[in-house]
Design a protein around this nucleic acid. Structure first.
Lengths: 235, 235
DNA sequence: TATAATTGTGTACAGGTCACACAATTGGTA
DNA sequence: TACCAATTGTGTGACCTGTACACAATTATA
């Protein structure tokens, strides 16, 4: 016998049409960092069932399109950016998760630098929301957001990816504020600096902050060419 | 305008039929532990394109079936077990990954105790393969296996899940052999014991191994009621 | 009763994490 | 121009964790 998957392409097409009743989508949790807050880019849902609720950016996957390609497309269409950090996290497949029928959705998160990306800010449908102030989202998007945030939190413990959220040059204070915003904890300044210098991820630009009402800090940029990730656990 | 996902159910069904051309499947990497080797349960593919190659156990997801439910069903059908550890890992969505058409597959791994499960061993189509000796699999299943193994490796560093691979009572040597098989490293016996007792995951059964040609070791069972996981990172 | 195999046990060193304080620098303001 | 507010830059000791490492006790077997 064998299951449906073990039939040939013609058999599958003719006998198993019932299986082609599921659509697949991607949803992107697009993280940004601004004013010391972790933010996520949301769009107002125009589904009647979710009147006026915000939702993640997503779209159906096209029949001739890779899954990863679909999420890159969503990002490109919505933000104009095409060189972004993107990571698949989890696939949500509850039968009734979407009112428009059976839609299974694969969640990705991406990290982008808001500073390079102001136009979207003024758009009416799109908005950067502080992650901490989001109480409800359309569909199961709140769950998706939480799952992606947890993944991000565990990922940054070992891997140098937060730099995608910062401008090219940044101070150690900005970097620490970012870690604190993502992890939701306060850290010791001296230990934070020590740890990062040991990681060898930072290159001193020999420049100072401008226009700060206090002693300016040095500016660094990310450079992991000779850095070392302690335990390279591929999740 | 809005994307397809933001239309109502009737609009989606009528206008976006093109999107319902993708089937979704689950593939299960079923891990077992036997003779000090980590093994995986495979089935002989009967697709012509993959003549005589082994593949993971999987099936198409039914339209009225949750994603998790589908993988539980595959396990129940193939092994008869229905109280198993199961974890979703990743979704593989390359356009040409399956010769039978556009099939996106979500990978799960599960941990089962081979000892409770000998019948399957004698089945002709199904076979337990040592993970280390697998050079090729049908479809992209080698990649799926590797991805699930890496996830398992990182998971056991923090979470007490390997017990699902062992009989209820086991010796510390068996437990250490299991960790070594999964992680592919040799460990120091004294440090291993110390670490596990500190974790407080083990309950002393006050019994000894039987029929071993050497000094018998104590038997333990898993009991995490008062154990502590160092960093509860939900992946 | 000797041998092979394995269990059960403690200590010392190295490295990492963590808490913690003070002088120096800048812009703003009285 | 002198002070104030804010923040940078810097080092050390306590503690915990990971790791390397050796020997007597126990069992089955020859």
């Amino acid at each position: 016998m064998g299951t449906a998957l073990q039939r040939t392409i013609h058999q599958l097409r003719s006998e198993d049409r019932e299986f082609f009743q599921i659509a697949i989508s991607v949803d992107c949790v697009i993280f940004g960092f601004d004013k010391n807050e972790l933010k996520v880019l949301l769009i107002k849902s125009d589904l009647e069932e979710f009147n006026n609720q915000w939702s993640l950016l997503g779209d159906l996957v096209r029949p001739d399109e890779n899954l990863d390609t679909a999420s890159y497309r969503v990002l490109k269409d919505r933000t104009g950016l095409d060189d972004v950090y993107l990571e698949q996290v989890y696939t949500f497949g509850e039968v009734n998760r979407h009112p428009a029928g059976r839609v299974i959705s694969t969640a990705y998160y991406s990290l982008i630098n808001i500073k390079d990306h102001l136009p979207v800010y003024s758009d009416n449908e799109l908005h950067w929301h502080p992650v901490n102030e989001i109480s409800a989202l359309a569909f199961d998007h709140k769950t998706i957001l939480e799952t992606c945030l947890r993944r991000l939190q565990s990922k940054i413990e070992e891997h140098p990816i937060v730099f995608n959220l910062l401008p090219e040059k940044f101070s150690l204070r900005e970097l620490q504020n970012l870690y604190e915003a993502i992890l939701g904890v306060k850290m010791d300044r001296r230990n934070f600096r020590k740890k990062f210098f040991l990681m060898n991820w930072l290159e001193d630009m020999n420049e100072l902050e401008q226009d700060v009402p206090h002693r300016p800090g040095k500016l660094y940029r990310f450079n992991a060419t000779n850095g070392k990730t302690k335990t390279p656990i591929p999740v």
